[in-house]
Amino acid sequence: MSQRSRPATTTRPRVATVLPRSLLWQRTDVPGAEHVVLDDGRGLAARGVAVAAGPVEYTCRYELVTDERWVSRSFEATAEGGGWLRRLHMDRTGDGWRITTAEQGDLTAAGQPNALPPGTDDPDRLADALDIDLFGSPLTNTLPIRRLGLIDGTVTIVAAWVLLPSLAVVANAQTYTVLGPGRVRYASGSFTADLELDENGYVVNYPGLASR
């Protein structure tokens, strides 16, 4: 049975120490960047650092692991800035996500007064989410593309959307439409972006967000 968010216990390492590949994106919307090391030989194991300057300056360090089918199995992140630090740990069990959180300091006093608490008060809303989507991270757009083997057509999925810098988690409907070789349109609500991908499905250019 799914559990509500609660204070985190000691987390355990998820990703092997040495990973063979590296990707680096430069943010184009705000000053910032994301660097990821990864192994995608059998699913994905990734460790990344994202830094951004708006609307609150933050650094987010994360680890993400999928199974061989590219279904997200675990995700953990630490986001921090001046006067605050938040942690999130997510594990997908047989019937949904188990989520734990921890918080130090006060993000709301650091320039984001409307920040949601980390995690979610109802993990059952995420029961259909097979993909993690980290806010502002081009890496996580690859997850449903690889999981579904998307080469044509249109698909709509529900992702566990991890907001930054709050580390709040919400269920988010997202649509991916193949436009042609190496081009996929991402849509969520009224937002759309035409993504340029490399031969492995990783984002090369995300208009208005990041490029490499």
Rank of each mutant, 00 (worst) to 15 (best):
Gln104Ser: 14
Ile99Lys: 05
Gly32Val: 09
Leu24Tyr: 11
Thr100His: 09
Ala46Trp: 00
Asn114Pro: 06
Asn114His: 13
Ala193Arg: 12
Gly119Cys: 08
Ala33Lys: 12
Glu68Thr: 14
Val36Lys: 03
Leu164Phe: 03
Gln174Asp: 05
Gly48His: 08
Gly82Asn: 13
Asp122Leu: 10
Leu179Val: 01
Ala33Asp: 14
Glu34Trp: 07
Gly54Ala: 15
Phe135Ser: 15
Val51Ser: 09
Val170Ile: 15
Val169Ala: 07
Pro55His: 06
Ala159Phe: 06
His35Pro: 01
Pro165Thr: 05
Phe135Ala: 15
Asp67His: 06
Pro123Trp: 08
Asp40Gln: 10
Pro144His: 02
Ala53Cys: 12
Asp67Pro: 10
Leu38Asn: 05
Arg125Thr: 13
Pro181Asn: 11
Arg27Val: 00
Ile99Arg: 00
Arg86Trp: 00
Phe75Tyr: 14
Thr177Ser: 14
Thr120Trp: 02
Thr140Glu: 09
Pro20Leu: 14
Ala8His: 07
Thr142Glu: 01
Arg73Phe: 07
Thr93Trp: 11
Glu103Leu: 10
Gly208Cys: 01
Pro7Ile: 11
Leu85Ser: 14
Thr28Gly: 08
Leu179Pro: 09
Pro31Trp: 07
Asn114Gly: 09
Pro31Tyr: 12
Leu167Met: 10
Val15Met: 11
Leu88Phe: 06
Leu44Thr: 02
Leu24Ala: 13
Ala193Asp: 06
Leu38Asp: 04
Pro31Phe: 07
Trp25Asn: 00
Leu163Trp: 07
Ala115Asn: 08
Thr154Gly: 02
Ala110Lys: 03
Leu88Lys: 05
Pro181His: 14
Ala52Glu: 01
Ala46Asp: 04
Trp97Ala: 00
Asp106Phe: 05
Asp91Ala: 03
Pro123Arg: 04
Asn200Trp: 12
Arg61Lys: 14
Arg92Glu: 08
Gly105Phe: 04
Tyr62Ile: 05
Asn205Lys: 10
Asp194His: 05
Arg69Trp: 11
Leu130Cys: 13
Val204Ile: 15
Ala77Asn: 02
Ser137Lys: 06
Leu116Asn: 12
Ala187Lys: 04
Ala110Glu: 07
Gly94Val: 12
Gly201Val: 05
Thr154Pro: 05
Ala171Ile: 06
Ala33Thr: 12
Leu143Glu: 10
Arg92Ser: 01
Pro113Val: 00
Gly32Leu: 02
Pro31Ile: 09
Asp133Lys: 10
Leu38Pro: 01
Val158Gly: 04
Pro7Trp: 09
Ala129Gly: 07
Ala160Arg: 09
Glu57Cys: 12
Leu24Thr: 14
Thr192Ile: 10
Thr101Trp: 00
Ala193Gln: 03
Ser2Tyr: 04
Ala187Gly: 00
Trp70Ser: 02
Val15Thr: 08
Gly111Phe: 04
Thr11Trp: 09
Val162Ala: 02
Leu209Asn: 04
Gly189Asn: 13
Asp121Met: 12
Leu195Lys: 01
Asp124Ile: 06
Trp161Ala: 06
Val56Cys: 10
Val71Tyr: 01
Gly41Ala: 14
Trp161Thr: 04
Gly96Thr: 04
Thr101Gln: 00
Val37Leu: 13
Asp128Pro: 11
Val204Asn: 07
Thr101Pro: 06
Arg98Asn: 05
Ala33Ser: 15
Leu195Glu: 10
Trp70Ala: 04
